[in-house]
Design a protein around this nucleic acid. Sequence first.
DNA 1: CTGAAAGCGCTTACAG
DNA 2: CTGAAAGCGCTTACAG
Lengths: 334, 334
Amino acid sequence: MAVTMNDVAKAAGVSLKTVSNVINNYEFIRPATKQRVLDAIDELGYETNLTARSLRSGKTKMLGLVLADLSIPYYAELASDIMKAAWSRGYRVLVEQSGNEAEHEKAALQGQFRSLTDGLLFIPLTLGAQQIIDAAGKKPLVLLGEFVQDPRLDMVLIQNHEAAAAVTTHLLAGGRRRIAVLGADDGETTGSAGLRLSGYKAALADAGVEYDPALVVRCEWRRDGGAAAVAGLLDSGADFDAVFGLNDALALGALHELLVLGKRVPEEIAVAGFDDIEEARFASPSLTTVAPGRAEIAERAVELLIERIEGNMAAPEVRQLQAAFELRVRKSAT
Amino acid sequence: MAVTMNDVAKAAGVSLKTVSNVINNYEFIRPATKQRVLDAIDELGYETNLTARSLRSGKTKMLGLVLADLSIPYYAELASDIMKAAWSRGYRVLVEQSGNEAEHEKAALQGQFRSLTDGLLFIPLTLGAQQIIDAAGKKPLVLLGEFVQDPRLDMVLIQNHEAAAAVTTHLLAGGRRRIAVLGADDGETTGSAGLRLSGYKAALADAGVEYDPALVVRCEWRRDGGAAAVAGLLDSGADFDAVFGLNDALALGALHELLVLGKRVPEEIAVAGFDDIEEARFASPSLTTVAPGRAEIAERAVELLIERIEGNMAAPEVRQLQAAFELRVRKSAT
DNA sequence: CTGAAAGCGCTTACAG
DNA sequence: CTGAAAGCGCTTACAG
């Protein structure tokens, strides 16, 4: 049905191999021959069948990207950056939504899905390091996010501890002393939440401010989670003059709820977040937050993964890269 | 390198065909044989090579989705819904970002990319109907959004006119008489902007309120576009008591800018949008808007496209479906 | 510089 | 119910 390389070869009066050479930019082709082939391609409207190429070459030129859900702004923005980074290197991205479910994460790691991609960018949310290592095949894998940390796995990291400390220090510098943290458990030490919480604690300690576990509230990292958490905190009669949401979504939810409940932000209560999604700039008041280096993360993750895919190193050293962060001071906590 | 069906066949002591039968759930297999094959699959860790299957069957079980950019919330939320709808029907989605550029849109329509998908969901932003028809191959294509309307093309539509009229009528019912429209040109009549503008005009006419072209401001459908547009309007000394942003992003940008400039919303100026992205609910004040039926659009578009892909109708009638909309009244315009 | 041939891993008539 | 064989459209040694 479709036009094949064979048709082109016949039309141009050359062999299959010559057409292939032209398509793959093999250097040593007589210009006249090349032109004839190109003309035939044009005339017949030939297009490479990428499926056939993949089967033969064993490469799909596609990267898998496993994340919870594209409706979460941070992931959507990251996915956009990753797709651009991949595209500029000749790769496409196949997104898989895990919905934050272990089954889906496992399926993405080992299922047939893997045969469609040359490597995987994976933002684990439920699976642990060992499970990932067990489930993952031999194909290259680069982790993003910090729910998992393991010296055996390639990953691109955010400076969670340092960035969270910077946010906290900024709040402290603004005179806040009772800073509520939304999105972590008091005892947590690992994963994004634990690392950010430890940065918060470190900043408090540096400033000689006492840590109060009553100000640490667990909640989902979503707008409605932040809203509920801050409402609960107010309800409980807790005394606080600032809120640090461990991501922007929940910080924005908290901000919204505070305003609904008649609190003045930042006069009575300052609010800060983490991620610097675009929405943060346009909230009212605009949200103070920290940019974790999203574009850099996307670039480096794609670069590293492609290096693994195309590299011929036998047993490469594990690489764990870190992106630079930047505090963004806005109206919600000046 | 990888385990193939042949390996499984040998291990199970059957022919290739039998393995294929088991994998594809062919009914008439002796249970014992089937079990032996399944055991072998399990033991060897066999996984179907989807690339090979695609080459042979001519189907990739992938749908292409072409949109401007995933960092735009409405598209991200729509993409998420579309991926879920496709997934539940056994299809994957390959997203292509056009960046709102004609070259990319054309490439997505006709390039090699097409060979990776069985059909395309396309949100055109720059290409016209004729260009789309010319560029598109013979593979199924379903359009989303309303920048293009043409009786020859399958599409799933938003009730732009009616929904915009509903928003406008709501603002009028709230006593507003000078309603600025952001995101359209005065003369526009086609595309999402034109259709929404015409709904606005119709609602004004119904209420006996005069249409004032000076209140119609063209701007990009993004947060910063809306912010700039409303700032320009205030600058020009225009007199208005409400703002209707033709999508939520620009309405939220306008809302933010109004508050920055010290206007009280909704007391002095009411604000309404279009799309009902999640962010709208958590803006402060929360944004009145209209939900265009995103989930329904996703479902029906996927359903229609798959029907085209799998259907065996020779020359099916063109189908143009419409989703139901719903006004969401919130604080920005009560 | 170019040709003839093998083979990537499946599915699918065609036999039996 | 199951086997042997062809072929999807490419790429890639191997020759020349």
